[in-house]
């Protein structure tokens, strides 16, 4: 067991790379974070920042034909996962660490009944009979508040709506009482009203079961409402980490600030013409990850960037109160208005 006892998951210097025709893509480049028992951690960043790859790396579900974990360490309950045998890893997946995916429409198998897809997970990991597993599946569907759960067991995914399918995914993911639930954009593909229901459901079940959650999203609104701590990723690197209140009170990385300025705000008074200030986008594009980036990955898009930013990667520094940030110019950023 690890000495830093309170954490159920410890990721250190994770590097995940993919081989492409353009060369090696460093999708995750030295990311570290901890997850405490029962905690909800948010990972936020735009598309392609490596947040989903981080999630898949934890479960070791990176397709071996194209990608690999090239370095770093992932410790679950003190046990190193990057070197764990495949059979032992299969024993963890769906049992002690489970995952919900973004697309509920395509994440369930179209030719197997909902009941079978939940029950097979229970049979696999709990060593119970199919009959008992089916009963467990019914309880889980009932728990995620699917009406007429007994009948739904024998239905196929195409007979369910998107929101119901995501409920089924949650029921499936929680069916073996996992210690860690990784939710990769669980609400992105859903209607706004359904999004709120699904998030509430996840948080409520978390209270009941004590499962720690890693919530991956590009939606800062979701982060604000559901998580306790936030990791901000950019171009495969962690650029900032803070308790959620601290992050929203005083974002310290220019990238985080850019994300926040891009959120529509209803609390700012409209002017006489009924107009609110224009949303500000972050100029430029995410850098290509096939070439090593010498300095700060955000420097080409950053208004604060200096020569040093482009030459040397900024280390993560403690800004107090559990708030860390990787920025050479943090003092200037802090002094400027949001």
């Amino acid at each position: 067991m690890s000495v830093t006892s309170g954490n159920i998951l410890e990721v250190r210097g994770l590097q995940t790379q993919f081989n492409t025709l353009d060369g090696v893509v460093r999708a995750v480049d030295g990311v570290s974070f901890d997850l405490a028992r029962g905690e909800t951690l948010g990972i936020v960043g735009e598309s392609g920042c490596g947040k989903s790859v981080t999630a898949l790396s934890i479960l070791r579900l990176i397709p071996p034909e194209t990608g690999r974990i090239a370095g770093g360490s992932i410790k679950f309950e003190g046990e190193e996962l990057t070197t764990l045998g495949e059979e032992a890893m299969k024993g963890l997946r769906g049992h002690r660490i489970s995952m919900i995916f973004q697309e509920p429409m395509t994440s369930l198998n179209p030719v197997l009944t909902v009941g079978t897809q939940i029950a097979e997970n229970v049979v696999r990991h709990m060593g119970v009979s199919w009959r008992a597993a089916r009963e467990r599946s019914f309880e889980m569907l009932d728990l995620v508040r699917i009406a007429d759960a007994r009948r739904r067991l024998d239905e196929y995914p195409h007979q369910l709506s998107g929101g119901m399918r995501q409920r089924v995914m949650i029921a499936l993911a929680l069916s073996c009482d996992p210690q860690v639930l990784i939710a990769d954009e669980p609400t992105t593909a859903l209607d706004v009203t359904i999004q709120a229901q699904i998030l509430d459901l996840m948080l409520e079940l978390k209270e009941k079961t004590g499962t720690a959650i890693v919530l991956i999203t590009h939606d800062l609104g979701v982060i604000a409402e559901t998580t306790e701590r936030v990791v901000v990723m950019y171009a495969g690197r962690k650029v900032e980490e803070a308790p959620v209140e601290a992050l929203f009170a005083e974002p310290l990385h220019p990238y985080t600030r850019g994300l926040m300025r891009a959120i529509p705000r209803l609390d700012i008074e409209a002017d006489a013409a009924g107009m609110r200030p224009r949303l500000q986008e972050i100029p430029g594009l995410v850098p290509r990850l096939t070439q090593p980036i010498p300095g700060c990955a955000f420097a080409p898009r950053c208004g604060f960037a200096t020569e040093r930013c482009r030459a040397e990667p900024p280390p993560l520094v403690d800004a107090g109160g559990g708030h860390t940030v990787a920025c050479w110019e943090v003092d200037r950023v802090r002094a400027s208005a949001l």
Partner: peptide
């Protein structure tokens, strides 16, 4: 991927 995430 879901099936693999169940450790089947």
């Amino acid at each position: 991927r879901t099936a693999n995430a169940k450790g089947l």
